[in-house]
Amino acid sequence: MLSQQIATFVAAVGESGHEELAPLIAPPFVIGGAMFAILVVLLLITLSYSNLGRRHVAVDEHSDPHRQHPNKHDHSQGH
């Protein structure tokens, strides 16, 4: 049953001949080049933020009992 449906589909596709492709706004290499350029710009923007973690010396967070969600991971050693 399934093989008959597949054979019918293959025969129908074979009879349709050449299908016309949808028009593009530019040649494929121009579209690919533009996509590559956009991704390179996004990469450079991402890399420009890489120094934010090294800008200041890391400081331990103080234990504040008035915080709405206090840090319970220090097991009351941060007082």
Rank of each mutant, 00 (worst) to 15 (best):
M1S: 12
M1P: 03
L2K: 15
S3T: 10
S3E: 14
Q4S: 12
Q4V: 10
Q4P: 08
Q5D: 09
I6L: 15
T8H: 08
F9D: 15
V10H: 02
A11S: 06
A11H: 07
A12C: 05
E15F: 05
E15S: 12
E15N: 03
E15A: 12
E15Y: 02
S16L: 13
G17L: 04
G17E: 06
G17H: 00
H18C: 14
H18V: 11
E19C: 12
E20C: 09
L21Q: 13
L21S: 13
A22P: 05
A22E: 08
I25M: 11
A26G: 03
A26M: 04
A26L: 01
P27G: 02
P27D: 13
P28C: 02
P28N: 15
F29A: 10
F29R: 15
I31Y: 04
I31V: 06
G32C: 09
G33A: 04
A34F: 06
M35Q: 09
F36N: 09
F36Y: 07
I38V: 03
L39T: 05
L39G: 07
V40F: 05
V41Y: 08
L42D: 05
L44Q: 04
L44G: 03
T46L: 04
T46N: 06
S48K: 03
Y49N: 11
N51C: 06
N51T: 09
N51Q: 10
L52C: 03
G53C: 02
V57A: 13
V57C: 11
V57Q: 02
A58P: 11
V59L: 07
H62G: 14
S63K: 06
S63Q: 03
S63G: 08
P65F: 00
P65H: 00
H66E: 15
R67F: 05
R67Q: 09
R67W: 07
Q68A: 08
Q68N: 14
Q68S: 10
H69D: 09
H69I: 01
H69Y: 08
H69T: 04
H69E: 08
P70Q: 02
K72Q: 14
K72N: 13
H73T: 08
H73G: 13
D74L: 03
H75V: 13
H75P: 07
S76C: 14
S76Q: 11
Q77H: 10
G78N: 14
G78P: 03
H79G: 15
H79F: 05
H79S: 10
